[in-house]
Computed example of a mutant assay.
Amino acid sequence: MLDDLPPDLHRLETLRMWHALWLDRIDAKIARLRAEGEQQACAVQQRVERAPEWLLERGIGHGGRPVEVHCGDCHAAGKRRQGISAEEARRALADGVPACTHCRPDTELGVLEG
């Protein structure tokens, strides 16, 4: 059996106290990281719940012209986008803004071409 601990009670008690203090620090950090993880998960959930139902993607530049209409959860929507209402999405499609070919917002909104 490996016995590399000090032979006297005083040093053993000192080691025990030192390790207890470290365990307290480790437990406190674990609790803090768990709380931060829960807060981040909650923030992500709130962002998902507040995701717009429809997106309008815009072109490059300040006030870029609309280039495509997307469903709110479309993976193909670019970075230059803004959330819009269903009525605004229908109006954009009627004004000639193309519908995304991946998520097909025109089909979802019941807008027929022609």
Rank of each mutant, 00 (worst) to 15 (best):
D3Y: 09
P6K: 04
P7T: 12
P7G: 13
D8C: 04
L9K: 08
H10L: 11
H10P: 04
T14R: 15
L15G: 10
L15Q: 14
R16L: 15
H19P: 05
L21N: 08
L21P: 00
L23D: 15
L23E: 12
I26L: 10
D27S: 14
K29D: 13
K29T: 15
I30P: 01
A31Q: 12
R32M: 07
L33N: 10
L33M: 11
R34D: 14
R34E: 15
A35F: 06
A35K: 12
E36F: 06
G37N: 11
G37D: 11
Q39N: 10
Q39R: 15
Q39V: 11
Q39S: 14
Q39T: 11
Q39H: 13
Q39A: 15
Q40R: 11
Q40E: 12
A41L: 11
A41F: 04
C42Q: 13
Q45I: 10
Q45D: 12
Q46A: 15
V48S: 07
R50C: 09
A51D: 04
W54G: 06
W54H: 10
L55Q: 08
L55W: 06
E57N: 05
G59V: 10
G64T: 11
P66H: 01
P66L: 04
P66G: 02
V67S: 03
E68Q: 12
H70I: 01
C71E: 09
C71I: 06
C71W: 04
G72T: 03
G72N: 01
C74F: 07
C74Q: 07
A76R: 06
A77G: 09
G78D: 03
G78C: 02
G78P: 02
K79I: 15
K79T: 15
R81K: 13
Q82F: 06
Q82A: 13
S85L: 07
E88F: 04
A89P: 03
A89D: 02
R90L: 03
R91S: 10
R91P: 06
A92I: 03
L93M: 07
A94L: 09
A94T: 06
D95P: 04
G96D: 02
V97D: 01
V97W: 00
P98V: 06
C100R: 00
C100P: 02
C100A: 02
H102A: 13
C103N: 06
C103D: 07
P105H: 01
P105R: 01
D106V: 01
T107L: 08
L109P: 00
L109G: 00
L109C: 02
L109R: 00
G110W: 00
L112T: 04
L112H: 02
L112I: 05
L112R: 01
E113I: 00
G114H: 03
